[in-house]
C-alpha cells in the first residue's frame, strides 16, 4: 500500500519536467553537427546539451562563454557537458540543480539503442521525452548495416525512433541514395524521414572546385580481415595537395593512416609534415626535414599497391607535366 499525505501542509509542487530531445545515431552520423545547428538556430532556451559520444565536446568556439567544472556555458543561455560514466547519477544531479534546465538535449553514445533511453526519459522523475531522432549518414548506412560487429545496433537505432534525419547524401549517385533509403524504410516504415541540408565543411583550406581524376574503386580492392601493411613512397617532386587529399579520402575504406614529409606544389620551398586520418588531412611546417616521403598504412596489399600507383602517377608526376 502506498503511503498518502494526510493532514499538514500540501507537498511542494514538483517543478515542470525537463523536456528531453534524444539524438541517436552511429559514430559519424552527424550528431555533433546537429547539436551545433540547434545551438545556432537559437530556438532552444535554457537548454542543457549532454554529450555521450566518448569524443571532444566539439562545440563551435564562438558560442562558448565559459568553461567550469566540465560544463561549457554558452552565450545564448544554454550549457553543454559530457556524460561522466554514470548517467543515472548525472540525471539525478541535473534535476536537483538550483536552476535546472528547461530542456535537455542528450547526444546518445554511438552504440546506444534508442528504445531503452526513450523509456528512461518517459519514466524518470523530473524528465519528459519530447522527441527521439536518429541521425543517419546515408552514404555509410548500408555498409554499417552489413557490418557484423555493429549492424544489429545500427538496425535498432533506425527501428526505434519516430524521426530519422538523413545527411551526407549529396555526393551519392541517385541510385545509391535510393537503395540506402529503401533499406531504412524497410526497417522502419513509419518513421518520418527528413533530409538535412548540406553542411559546409570546416574550412581548413580553400575548398576546390577542380575536377579530380577518377580514382580506382578502393572498396572493391579492400578485403575483410586483411593484414595491415605499409608502403613508403619516396617523392621526388612537390605534391598537389588537393589531389593528394582527394586520393587518400577515396581510399579511406582500406587506408588507416598516412604520414610523412613533403613539399606542396603551391609553395615548393617549404617542407611540410603531413598527417592523414579518415576524413582529415593536417599539414604543418617542418623546416628540419630534408627528404620527401609518405608512409601509407592500410589493410591488404592489392589496395595499398593501387594507392601507391595512383600517388606516383596522378599526384606527383602530374606536377612535372605542368
Amino acid at each position: 500500500m502506498r503511503l498518502c499525505w494526510e493532514g499538514g501542509p500540501p507537498p511542494m509542487p514538483e517543478p515542470a519536467p525537463i523536456d528531453t530531445l534524444l539524438l541517436c545515431g552511429f559514430l559519424g552520423s552527424g550528431k555533433t553537427t546537429r547539436i551545433n545547428q540547434l545551438i545556432r538556430a537559437g530556438r532552444l532556451r535554457n537548454a542543457l546539451f549532454l554529450i555521450n559520444d566518448f569524443g571532444t565536446l566539439n562545440i563551435d568556439a564562438e558560442w562558448i562563454d565559459a568553461r567550469e567544472d566540465g560544463v561549457l556555458r554558452l552565450n545564448n543561455g544554454c550549457a553543454c557537458c559530457g556524460i561522466s560514466g554514470n548517467l543515472s547519477a548525472q540525471l539525478t544531479e541535473i534535476r536537483r540543480w538550483p536552476g535546472p534546465p528547461e530542456c535537455l538535449v542528450l547526444e546518445a553514445s554511438g552504440v546506444a539503442r534508442p528504445r531503452p533511453l526513450m523509456q528512461l526519459f518517459d519514466a524518470a522523475r523530473g524528465y519528459r521525452l519530447g522527441r527521439a531522432d536518429t541521425l543517419v549518414d546515408l552514404s555509410a548506412i548500408r555498409s554499417l548495416l552489413d557490418d557484423d560487429a555493429v549492424g544489429d545496433i545500427v538496425h535498432d537505432q533506425l527501428r526505434d525512433v519516430g524521426h530519422i534525419l538523413v545527411s551526407r547524401y549529396h555526393a551519392m549517385p541517385g541510385g545509391a541514395a535510393d537503395a540506402a533509403l529503401e533499406r531504412i524504410k524497410a526497417i522502419n516504415p513509419h518513421a518520418r524521414v527528413d533530409w538535412l541540408p548540406p553542411v559546409a565543411p570546416p574550412c581548413r583550406r580553400q575548398v576546390s572546385r577542380r575536377a579530380m581524376p577518377s580514382w580506382p574503386d578502393f572498396a572493391r580492392l579492400a578485403k575483410p580481415a586483411s593484414s595491415i601493411v605499409s608502403r613508403t613512397v619516396h617523392l621526388d617532386a612537390p605534391v598537389d595537395i588537393e589531389r593528394l587529399e582527394s586520393l587518400l579520402d577515396a581510399a579511406r575504406v582500406l587506408l588507416l593512416r598516412a604520414k610523412g614529409m613533403l613539399r606542396s606544389h603551391d609553395a615548393p620551398a617549404d617542407m611540410l609534415a603531413v598527417q592523414w586520418t579518415a576524413g582529415e588531412l593536417r599539414l604543418s611546417p617542418l623546416p628540419s626535414a630534408r627528404h620527401q616521403a609518405l608512409v601509407l598504412i592500410g589493410k591488404g596489399e592489392p589496395g595499398l599497391d593501387a594507392l601507391v600507383t595512383c600517388l606516383e602517377t596522378a599526384v606527383v608526376n602530374q606536377n612535372r607535366e605542368k
Binding site: L87, S88, A89, L91, T92, R95, R115, P116, L117, Q119, L120, D122, A123, A124, R125
Partner: peptide, 27 residues
C-alpha cells in the same frame, strides 16, 4: 519500461533490468 519484468497478470515481479528501470530506484 522493457526492463520491468512482469508476471502473467502484468504485475511487476520485482525484477528491474538495466539502467532505465534501475534508475528509478537509484534516483
Amino acid at each position: 519500461i522493457d526492463g520491468i519484468v512482469r508476471d502473467s497478470t502484468d504485475q511487476p515481479t520485482g525484477e528491474l533490468q538495466e539502467l532505465p528501470a534501475m534508475h528509478l530506484v537509484f534516483d
